[in-house]
Design a protein around this nucleic acid. Structure first.
Lengths: 209, 209, 209, 209
DNA sequence: GATGAATGAGGGTTCATTCAT
DNA sequence: AATGAATGAACCCTCATTCAT
């Protein structure tokens, strides 16, 4: 996640002092607020600064330009998410494959659902960005973690871990995102979540039948 | 798909005459070109008109504003896509469930892959829009078609068609999109595609074991 | 009134044929409608043509440009008004001065009040124009008529007809216009009208006391 | 005068600091210049900003839109004018009625004549606006002042002050405006001014004869 | 370090006018 | 003669970014 973005998008300073940290957090939070309330097209530097309670000038001390701000915000979220996935994968090392899948779905689904609106806002904000780098960095980290986990599966080595990983990751991440975009009801969501788990388990079962 | 969008987004005139039709198509194509080359943030009315070989004024004769243009473009693509899905579903009526799933994945995957870059461009362009209406209209049409298809499955009635439909639709559409965003290699893509099919089949198999 | 305006403002053709006459009238009426409904800033050639039931092209056959249209419209109204004043002045020739004044106020006030909204709309529309020419032409015609009338006053020659004329014309026309702009109630209007007459009579009385 | 205009027309910031004050004044002056030189239809935001020596952006920091600028300009002038009328009325309290009228005509006429061209430009600029609010606010203030003055007239209470006020105000303001629109010569103007005074005095005389 | 007024390029949009049909 | 689609200059306005204080 901390892999080098285009120089233009790099944050200007690492907020080492606690005061800076507070400021940056306020800016991030303000960005999310504006995104939620008014949408991407109303995300102006002035408005963010205002809501964050700082001046535009100050904002530019921490982020070289608007894109960098949005970029950093998404980076932060993906960092957190990757961290959670890593934690889950660490915890599940050596467990049976089906349980791994359950855990992975749980982690991802929960992470996205906790602040559903924020997730949605971020999905939108990232569309303008040079997305790929961000996604790749996240994918790389997450894939490393899940691959390591799958490799450690209890009942012997998986034949083609990379293929398994690619498949499960794509299906899980993709399905969860799609669930968001469809705006499912609570009930539909829980049906889908259960069935997604079933499906993954069935696939794994079929692989080793 | 042709369900009423917010008035503000409605196209101004239906291009009935062939000359108009050509113009509108040129504008659509130009929009895609710009989206591909320069991204959403560079999609200006002037640039689109220029590339389409018409004046801005002409563009505004057909679209009341920029958003409406992007909206109409997406609408057109989703319309086509929904049409293809309906065709497939029609053709597969009464077939065995696994073959239905194969056909559905094929149709969707192919449709998205044919002009992969365009698909990617549209995914981005739609993020700024009032997405929901568009998605819902598409979902409604596609769901109706697939549900009808699943209901007609050869070997007896599916127990809960709606749940099955929700699951398969979410997984398939979601996975395909995720595949795009990850920017998979040709090979990875074909592995994923095969495995997605396997997974759906395994799920269906498990349901009726 | 028919004095030469700047060439640019001249109407393109005199509508001699009855068909043309109808068209021009429709355009004039449409212009007023739009002015009334939507105000000067919404007075577009397209809208006027639309409401008149003709094409823009046709409109341009009769008026070389938009300004000419507004100009002609005002000219027509001022022409009519001048005609009415001339009629009154003709009728009152040789009458006693106070009765002349009564008649003049009556004529002017009535003319403006009959279609009060139209009057108001025209007042506004003319502000954009090169007003002066129009006003001068009207003033010249009206002044000629009133001066002739005052000269013929029953009880002997007025000492300085031009001064009297200037005074009465300015006071009467000015007061009536001001009444419009203040948006007086029915009652206030009639009080004002009565008092204006009183005042003019008092002035005349004082002159010859 | 400072009564609430439609929100859309409100000035954005009150120029409290002296620098801002200078800027705003420059913008006002520039607006007048442009109005004088090129007329209302050439009054573009760019042109005004240019002549004022500021950027368009700066202009928009003080005025939310072009209309608001014109509105504020007229408001300022009417404010000043109302202030002058109030001053005169205050000074003339308890004086004989004819002197009051003299003073009122003097004040109004002088105010309008001092910068005659500006007055003319403003008369035109206001036609596009939602005039009424502005006029009413002015009228209310001016009427209050004159009514109070007339009430205090030396030789006993006027019978119907409101009617007197309505009459004198309408006649005076209307006549002065009409004088402008006719574009009188210096000499004609002074004749008219004298006669207007005579007329008002004659009217008052007749009232209390 | 922080501020926020000033900047001005550039965006979306309108509409008077033309001219091929 | 009539049409109305096409034109494109010009308008109003926004907002990322800078820099004097």
């Amino acid at each position: 996640m901390t892999s080098a973005p285009r120089t233009a998008l790099k944050a200007r300073k690492r907020p080492v002092q606690s005061r800076s940290r507070v400021t940056v957090d306020a800016i991030f939070e303000a960005t999310i607020q504006v995104l939620l309330r008014d949408g991407m097209s109303a995300l102006t530097t002035t408005r963010v600064a205002e809501r964050a309670g700082v001046s535009v000038g100050t904002m530019y001390q921490y982020f070289p330009n608007k894109q960098a701000l949005v970029y950093a915000l998404n980076e932060r979220f993906l960092d957190t998410l990757a961290g959670r996935i890593e934690a889950t994968c660490g915890r599940m090392k050596g467990a049976p494959l089906p349980e791994m899948v359950d855990a992975l779905i749980n982690t991802y689904w929960t992470a996205k659902t906790e602040r559903a609106e924020v997730t949605r806002a971020l999905y939108r904000s990232v569309a303008e960005l040079d997305n790929d780098e961000l996604m790749h960095a996240f994918a790389a980290r997450a894939d490393a973690a899940t691959t390591a986990m799958f490799t450690s599966a209890e009942n012997g080595a998986v034949e083609d871990v990379d293929a398994l990983n690619l498949t499960l990751a794509s299906v899980i991440y993709g399905t969860v995102r799609n669930a968001f975009e469809r705006g499912l009801t609570q009930e539909e969501a829980s049906v889908l979540r259960r069935n997604l788990t079933e499906m993954c388990r069935a696939y794994i079962g079929a692989l080793y039948a």
